[in-house]
């Protein structure tokens, strides 16, 4: 067996997996605090990538300006969506909430297609293209930057949840809304905040993915669906689970892509996360790190 090939696959898997982890974290934050399942998470990622691209190409802004602008835009978008679309549905059946996020996904996707067209657009080069050698394996600098970026971001999020006022309030809301309310926390504001964070986190993932791939198109949105196996594996309400699940799915996907696809003529890489999903649902629906709920009558 070619060891370098295996290593290359592992590294690819970890890089893609780290972005899965990022998007899944956004997903988990929304689910934890509001109970909604956001199927538009992949579209948030697309919005981030396209807005950043637009700012850099049409406005000719440097990345250092375009990036914060993208974050501000998506933050606003997240809050707006929560306020306009999700809040009227508070207390609605799960089906309605799932469907409204599907509608949202369609709206964002078709909106982006309307403005930017369906062709693949080149993404400006953010990182030097020369690969660095990690032992015997050449690794592109974009990968390293991306993994570093995700690590910093997830650490920052962890600190935010642990130490900041807003982060603590968000956790209180997630664990018990009634208690949070009685402590004077505005639960509605926390809902908006969680959508805001989820949108921003995904947008960052989109920018990183655009930079790594060098081009963006509508296939970026598939990330949103890929994230579902990740969160089911990790547990719908667990941020560490999202990270572990993301890395795991990324690696499994790349390993099967590298070893099984040539044997079976392709397509295995795409379906394997969903096979994992089904297995997890059958064996342990609450995931690796999720809490089991006791149903009381």
């Amino acid at each position: 067996m070619d060891f370098t090939f295996l290593l290359q696959l592992l590294i690819n898997g970890l890089v893609v997996g780290s972005i899965y982890a990022l998007v899944a974290t956004g997903f988990v934050i929304i689910h934890k605090s509001t109970g909604a399942l956001n199927l538009a998470q992949g579209e948030f990622l697309m919005v981030g990538a396209y807005v950043c691209l637009y700012a850099m190409t049409t406005f000719r802004l440097p990345f250092a300006a375009a990036f914060p602008l993208t974050l501000a835009f998506t933050a606003l978008l997240g809050v707006l969506i929560e306020r306009v679309v999700l809040r009227p549905l508070l207390g609605s059946p799960v089906i309605s909430v799932i469907m409204v996020t599907l509608g949202l996904a369609g709206l964002l996707r078709s909106g982006l297609q309307f403005f930017f067209g369906t062709d693949t657009r080149a993404f400006p080069e953010l990182f030097p293209s020369a690969p660095v050698m990690l032992g015997v394996v050449p690794v592109s600098q974009g990968y390293i930057w991306s993994v570093a970026g995700v690590t910093v971001l997830l650490t920052a999020l962890g600190l935010f949840f642990r130490y900041s006022r807003a982060g603590l309030a968000l956790r209180a809301t997630a664990s018990n809304q009634q208690t949070a309310l009685s402590m004077g926390i505005s639960v509605k504001r926390m809902f908006a905040l969680s959508w805001c964070i989820a949108a921003v986190v995904s947008a960052i993932g989109g920018v990183l993915l655009g930079a790594i791939r060098g081009g963006i198109d509508m296939s970026l949105g598939h990330m949103g669906l890929k994230v579902l196996p990740v969160v089911i594996l990790g547990g719908l309400d667990s941020v560490p689970g999202a990270i572990v699940g993301g890395l795991f799915i990324g690696v499994v996907e790349n390993l099967t892509g590298g070893y099984l696809d040539p044997l079976l003529g392709g397509g295995v890489k795409e379906v394997v996360p969903y096979i994992v999903l089904v297995l997890i649902l059958m064996v342990r629906p609450s995931g690796l790190f999720g809490r089991k709920k006791v149903d009381r009558v």
């Binding site: 579902l228 196996p229 079976l264 795409e270 969903y274 999903l277």
Partner: peptide, 25 residues
Amino acid sequence: LRLKGLYLAMATLAAHFIVEFTVVK
């Protein structure tokens, strides 16, 4: 029987991709 709401949405989504894969293969 065991899956509700969002979990069922996910299971049926997985069924979609698995059927698609099977049809192709």
